[in-house]
Design a protein around this nucleic acid. Sequence first.
DNA 1: CTAACGTTTGTCCATTCGGTCAAAATTCGA
DNA 2: TCGAATTTTGACCGAATGGACAAACGTTAG
Lengths: 213, 213
Amino acid sequence: MTAAAAAPRRTRIQQEKRELILEAALEVFSAHGFRGSTIDQIAEAAGMSKPNLLYYFRSKEDIHETLMQRLLDTWLAPLRELDNVGDPLTELRGYIRRKLEMARDYPRESRLFANEILQGAPRIKPMLEGDMKDLVDEKAEVIKGWMRDGKIVQTDPWHLIFSIWATTQHYADFDVQVRAVLGPDRDGESRFEAAAHFLEQLFLDGLRPRRKG
Amino acid sequence: MTAAAAAPRRTRIQQEKRELILEAALEVFSAHGFRGSTIDQIAEAAGMSKPNLLYYFRSKEDIHETLMQRLLDTWLAPLRELDNVGDPLTELRGYIRRKLEMARDYPRESRLFANEILQGAPRIKPMLEGDMKDLVDEKAEVIKGWMRDGKIVQTDPWHLIFSIWATTQHYADFDVQVRAVLGPDRDGESRFEAAAHFLEQLFLDGLRPRRKG
DNA sequence: CTAACGTTTGTCCATTCGGTCAAAATTCGA
DNA sequence: TCGAATTTTGACCGAATGGACAAACGTTAG
């Protein structure tokens, strides 16, 4: 934890209203990006007037920053759970499933994050180079251990993590495209089941047919 | 090809200036998104005044639309090349490599596209549900044929295509994050070589160690 | 040379947007 | 209950932005 300013005292109303605003802001920011969103939109989504909203947050930037700070912890949680107990392939499969569930259950968070990265991560680059890099490096070491033990194939653990991020978050970030291509038939819940099954197969065994036995 | 308005006659200068503007707009839009970009920025990047730019394009929307229309063709070109001649695994490996090369050589195009999709594809949804879906469905059939022949493993061809898109475009769209995590050491050209090698391995054989022989 | 056409620019306008402020309304502790 | 603190709002401001327009400038065919 980096040094944080002492948490200011807040009344009950302040806490509730701030939560309300952050929820509304997540909705709006994730749909239109930072520059594409207006304080008025957020205020309306939160059911209050613009000046009222600005009573709880100093600025639009302030809302976004608060949102991003909370998000990063949640976002990296599945990776934090990846550890050395249990069978490596099972661990990885579990990680993939958790990430895919996050894409399904928290698509707004995924898109908010994707938006920020796409714009060059102007507001969270330090966090990426700090906490995130440290965590990924740590987990890469765990994976390297599995490779040395012959539990999984020898390959690059960093790119492995990237590929898990990419394939799972794709279903949140590129949702419109996925829907457009799959069409209205194969929609709904089954999409994620099919994705989960496919990804498991891909990551475990790839595409080349195996010899029987 | 859907019905297009008859191409207006243009002078030599008009053609050149329009190209100049589109190049500048690609730079600006891909970095800041549509709403995040201003006509002034584009005009400056193109080395002309705002009213001058608006002499060549009716509006900001007009520039963006023109850009997107051109982009989609280029973007789907690698998939169009995927066909039934040659060994299936070689074909797929070639497709992955071509897509990765596009992410490396045309990151701005990738990000422009990602931006549009992230915002819900307000301007190109019809194209996604039309041309793009048709092409993907067609190629999915090709892949299904390979599966029937036992050339590749039985799985979902649509999700396979998604996973190729996701993993390759990730290196363009999430470039900042990739750099942040890999750090300044493993940067430069080698990053893409490592990615190519990793993806080839992943898609062909997955992570589970193979029995020898 | 000059008239017609194509190109460029300075100026201006309406709207949107982030943010301020003072006053009104409400809540809450003593 | 009453006064202080908190919350809410209407009105307003300055800057940014997309775009219009007419006048000026350049080019070229006859």
